[in-house]
């Protein structure tokens, strides 16, 4: 079966994924990098937990919190996955992840008064440390800028 398009309701087996990978021309180097990265994502605890949480959030249905609350948008899910893909385990030790009613995702620091909100094209954050405040909204999203902001806050 071809693993293309929206597979939100499809749970591919090991065989499906391997057959897909073998159906496209991938160099030995790329295969090795993919293999290493996948092992990292399932064995490093904070990273694995973050991925599991995102998978859980992707299952939320319309009206999950009542009053017309929206499921997380596919663009937002793709954005957070792009951040996960370039991040390390230690980047996620600090952060709790949860859904927001406006189809976005929120992060909250475990140790600082800091919160972030990730949308389809922009993100925002608020931090208060030692009485000093730092905040921004409508920041253009890129995985690199978002991850850099997470690291700065943490």
């Amino acid at each position: 079966m071809a693993l293309t398009g929206n597979i939100a309701n499809y749970s591919p087996t090991y065989y499906d994924v391997m057959m897909y990978l073998h159906s496209i021309p991938i160099s030995k180097e790329v295969k090795e990098n993919v293999g290493r990265r996948l092992v990292k994502e399932v064995t490093e605890p904070a990273l694995a937990k973050a991925y599991a949480k995102i998978d859980e959030l992707s299952q939320l249905k319309e009206n999950w919190a009542g009053d017309g609350s929206l499921p997380i948008s596919q663009n937002v899910l793709n954005n957070i996955k792009r951040v996960l893909l370039i991040s390390d385990d230690k980047d996620w030790n600090e952060w709790m992840i949860g859904p927001d009613v406006n189809a976005t995702i929120g992060l909250q620091s475990k140790t600082h008064r800091a919160l972030m909100s990730l949308g389809a094209k922009e993100f925002s954050y608020f931090v208060r440390i030692d009485g000093e405040k730092m905040a921004a909204s409508h920041v253009d999203f890129s995985p690199e800028v978002f991850l850099e902001t997470m690291r700065k806050i943490a």
Binding site: D67, G98, N102, L115
Partner: peptide
């Protein structure tokens, strides 16, 4: 609170989000 707004025994900030066009938190 939705269970989704609790993590590590803490309340997440998303519990206090205004929905689009909403002017108050219920």
């Amino acid at each position: 609170l939705s269970n989704q707004w609790i993590s590590n025994g803490e309340i997440l900030h998303m519990a206090f989000t205004l929905r689009d066009k909403e002017t108050y938190i219920s």
